[in-house]
Design a protein around this nucleic acid. Sequence first.
RNA 1: GGACGAUUAGCUCAGUUGGUUAGAGCGCUACGUUGACAUCGUAGAGGUCGGCGGUUCGAAUCCGUCAUCGUCCACCA
Length: 885
Amino acid sequence: MSANQTKEMPTKYDPKESEAKWYSYWIEGDYFKAEGNSAKTPYTIVIPPPNVTGNLHIGHALNNTLQDILIRAKRMQGFDALWLPGMDHAGIATQARVEGMLKQEGVSRYDLGREQFVEKVWEWKGKYADIIRQQWSKMGLSLDYSRERFTLDEGLSNAVREVFVRLYEKGLIYRGKYIINWDPQTRTALSDIEVEYKEVKGALYHLRYPLKDESGFIEVATTRPETMLGDTAVAVHPQDERYQSLIGKIVILPITGREIPIVADDYVDKEFGSGAVKITPAHDPNDFELGNRHSLDRILVMDESGKMNENAGQYQGLDRFECRKQIVKDLQEQGICFKIEEHIHQVGHSERSGAVVEPYLSTQWFVKMGPLADAAIDKQKGEHAVAFVPDRFEKIYLHWIENIRDWCISRQLWWGHRIPAWYCGDCGEMSVSRTDIHQCPSCQSANLQQDNDVLDTWFSSALWPFSTLGWPEATEDLKHFYPTDVLVTGYDIIFFWVARMIFTGLEFTGQNPFKNVLITGLVRDAEGRKMSKSLGNGVDPMEVIDQYGADAMRYMLATGNTPGNDQRFRWERVEAARNFANKIWNASRFALMNLEEFTVEDIDLSGPLGTTDKWILTRLNETITDVTRLLDQYEFGESGRTLYNFIWDDLCDWYIEMAKPHLYGDDPQAKKTTQSVLCYVLDQTMRLLHPVMPFITEEIWQHLPHRGMSITVAEWPKVNEQHHYPESVKQMALLMDVIRNVRNIRAEMNVPLSKKIELMIKPSSDEALELLQKGEEYVRRFCNPEKLDISLSPTVPDKVVSAVVTGAEIYLPLAGLIDLAKEIARLEKEAENLAKEVERVTKKLSNEGFVAKAPAHVVAEEKAKGQDYQEKLNVIHARIEELKS
RNA sequence: GGACGAUUAGCUCAGUUGGUUAGAGCGCUACGUUGACAUCGUAGAGGUCGGCGGUUCGAAUCCGUCAUCGUCCACCA
């Protein structure tokens, strides 16, 4: 296939046109579909399923880009690469969004009823799933849509039930009445990690509870005075001398007049406050525990919306905060509350609704974490641990799982996996079952009621790596693709998701669900603030793509910083990435202009190669090695920069410039060789760049002479040992040095532009002479012959040195110098720099410790450098003297 | 109260096991319509790598400590 016409390629790359075209081409060609059950080694990534609550944000774009880079590279490297897409039903979040939408229509979920409401949510899900798929395609993600899953689809729902039933039968799921975190706004229980503790300026209210025997008072303090209505004891430390005589006495609880005991318990800290604590077992986890130890009553004083209930007597119906104000006022009037101190403390807020969470006594379902956590800890401390990248996150994971408490999994919502437990209205038995049941197994009654609660969303997410592959069925996919290779996710959901996938994976598949976990940071705004809806500082990835193209966004995100650290979103960086794409585009245009009639069969690297050819092929090899290694190490930033430097500096600035004389010259052999090298290097470079910038690389690759249908399935570049020429690197260094200096001369001198300068280059060795003879035309090419000309000569009459590089000296005519003093000053400055370096090296080499202890090659390098500096310095010194005389 | 991260050029960030005259992009200055590219090219200015102490022949890199900023964890009423 020959190169396509370049006439259709404008000077500016237009991502819009190219991106839509190639994504549908890839989908139609089925290039993203993993084979499954193949002889190829599998490489698997499951996408962290986005919530169907709305559009994807820039954080998804980062996370997805990294996964796509990995999966595309592995696909090209010959793995059976599977990137499995899917979405999460996101219980609370989605339900809240739909309720919000209904509210605008003046409808509540209770108006609709459970069935109709859930139907509405499914409609919503359908709409947003389409939007998300559209966004995935815009970003160019190479997802295998034939395997797409949803956490509420039939297969995954079966997996959820299977897990629930098995854990229940093992005694690892239980139901009971405990203190949980209650969100009064969404009216559901939350797990511990769904509570965010924020520092809040509150108050510490000091209360004086009267003793029943009228012998005095006992002082307690609280931050939540309204809970005193539910107090069922006052506790003191058993060894506290102050209270020895009070233990066992009775206190009259103010307002209610209830009689409650003073109990002794180790939990109480003698040092804090008065050393006496009011105990509210139904509204505080510690008090609950203490209450159990002392068989205290539990009095709930609020309802599920955070309003005071019938146990609150006169305060019934008041909101808890309204009640707080009222009760404090009343207690103050009665002299019960005698002191109010400002008090800064941590208050739990619902991660979802933001409401202040209420510790609340309620019947819920729990996962018993002890055995599951122990297994996960053992595994992580053994040989087959999950490798966290960066590894510091392993410590965070371990610390959490080592201190884990039972997981509250029931939610009082309608959108989610309904708990598979049924209660018999006749015999009262509870049955847990994999399939829906309609008859009580104990008494055969049909009077059955399924549990109203649904499971925590993360319960189903925890199964994601294996449930999506077909578990509990022993499917071909599960055998082939599980365990997965790497999980890419943000540090914010290590506890919510990563940890839970690990312990469920171990429990149900006996293996860690993934070998590596790559942790990404957050994408923040330009000021470093977290992006949030309330601040309105979020960046829509679709807008970025719209303005600069998906490749530019991907490159920017992937090279933004090192894994695990946050990055700031800056439009200037997207622009820089766009400019990079444009540079690649134009370099390719140049190549293609010179590859007309050139076909893939014409590529021939066996001909006599020039220094520049050998050099660029050697640099390509180095680039292949580095990029391949860096991608395997998840060093996306470094790999991106490596390619950037190779393409912009080596390929564009040097090789292409030096290729011009051959391409425009009349030596057909030289032209063909140059075309071959150019074509080959560009092809290989596009492949290396493809994982990060899939669209532009496909576009260019399709224009280039090539074999195959798509770069997505082209073979990953391998180091070409045949074309490895270390000496060419040294030679190019001389050439580049000379050119840089020659080019620089006019800028450095006060020579009128009209004046032509004739330079002379004096090679310092025969080897250098030979090289410069070969490279002379290149050097000339970088000058404007009208204004600057060069000639090569071993002798230099009537000239003065202008620059000294390793291997050559550059002279300019004495007669042409306008400002002798300035030239001397310039040389003196150069001499000064060199002298400093010589001194540094001399000092180093005269240090006995250095010579004795440093590795031989380091010492040798220093010596060589010293010599080089000294030689240059000598030449410059000599010339300064000449100029002065 | 613990743990972790960050601190490098005006700005945003690299710097892989300690060893080039510490780099890039953006910005800035001065030039530039040389047959791919002004979304470009050439040259340049700009850093005692947060402070102090230590290990080492040698530290941006390792250790200690302090400071500032940030994050996570923690039931003290």
